[in-house]
Design a binder for these strands. Structure first.
Length: 304
DNA sequence: ATACACGCCTGCTGGC
DNA sequence: TGCCAGCAGGCGTGTA
């Protein structure tokens, strides 16, 4: 399922293929993929056609493409099952293609494919970032879009791979959180880009139990956790993300390979790669949590 | 501000 | 064999 590494793999692929391309035409096959675009399909199409794609930017799991109409961007979120594919225009159609965007220079079709329709596209206004630093990650480009962010993404915090990520600020907020550390890691308003897979992987690596209250963890241990988060996300980006089935692909329709390096997610019943104990899965907050019952125990006392 | 339940969605799986 | 409940879970919204 798409989290930061999957979104980054898509971002890189788009930047390599359709940067500066001219949008010629748009076909909305399923308006449910525009549920966050108030104007509907006609307005969406009008806002895009005739524009060039000025950059491909990511913050957390959100992607946006600033348009040559200054102050606007095409925003995309992959949800649970979204893919953005770049195909030749005559390439065989995908069954769950919801939106087609035809571009020229070079000649391609961008396809928003989404089985469960938890993802969406929209056109949104760009506004200045609250810290006046670049809105997101976009190493290929610099320019007028830089210190801007779509209005609908402004509430999302910077992710751990963002050069302007403020770890000290996040740690100080965690000190005041009564909820569990996993809930905090999944809170995109606190730190973005982490979903269920990379939360479980990071907690395993840092030997923390998912239900450990955030405020009970020492600064030293929290730093260890965020080192783990960063390492796991970076390793997954290198592998092109995690693909289990047909749900996540890069822009060429190829799978990522990080699933081969998972130590926790989906490992229930297998031996812990660190201590050999049998890995467990527990229902938690309408999700599953995967962990080692030996390495990852809840501590009553303040965690050093 | 924080905390948390809920609805949105489709396709696959397992039990009967 | 066929049906259907259960499961996968990110995000915005609503409630307290």
């Amino acid at each position: 399922m798409p989290e930061l590494p999957e979104a980054e793999t898509v971002r890189t692929g788009l930047a390599k293929t359709i940067l500066n391309s001219l949008i010629e035409s748009v076909v909305v096959h399923d308006p449910r993929s525009l549920k966050r675009h108030p104007g509907g399909p006609d307005d969406f199409q009008r806002a895009l056609v005739g524009n060039r794609i000025g950059a491909v930017v990511r913050r957390g799991k959100f992607l946006w493409l600033p348009l040559s109409s200054k102050g606007f961007a095409l925003v995309a979120h992959l949800g649970m099952s979204g893919q953005i594919l770049v195909r030749s225009k005559d390439f065989e159609p995908e069954r769950q293609n919801r939106i087609s965007i035809n571009v020229a220079d070079p000649d391609f079709q961008i396809r928003f494919v989404d089985q469960r329709i938890f993802g969406s596209m929209m056109i949104d206004e760009l506004e200045p970032t609250s810290d006046l630093a670049p809105g997101g990650f976009s190493p290929e480009t610099s320019g007028a879009h830089e210190n801007l962010i779509p209005r609908s993404v402004a509430h999302i915090s910077r992710d751990p791979l963002d050069p302007f990520f403020d770890r000290a600020r996040v740690l100080s907020k965690l000190k005041l959180r009564n909820s569990s550390i996993k809930r905090a890691l999944l809170d995109q308003g606190l730190v973005s880009g982490i979903g269920n897979i990379y939360a479980d992987e990071s907690l395993w690596r840092a030997r923390l139990h998912f239900d450990q209250p955030a405020s009970s963890i020492s600064t030293r241990k929290l730093n260890e956790l965020f080192d783990s988060v960063t390492e796991v996300l970076q390793a997954a980006v290198i592998q092109g993300g995690t693909s289990f089935d047909e749900q996540y692909k890069n822009v060429n329709g190829e799978s990522g390979y990080f699933s081969q390096q998972l130590n926790a997610y989906g490992q229930a019943g297998t031996n812990c790669n660190r201590c050999g104990a049998i890995m467990k899965r527990e229902a938690w907050a309408n999700r599953g949590s995967h962990f080692c019952p030996h390495c990852q125990k809840i501590r009553k006392q303040k965690l050093k």
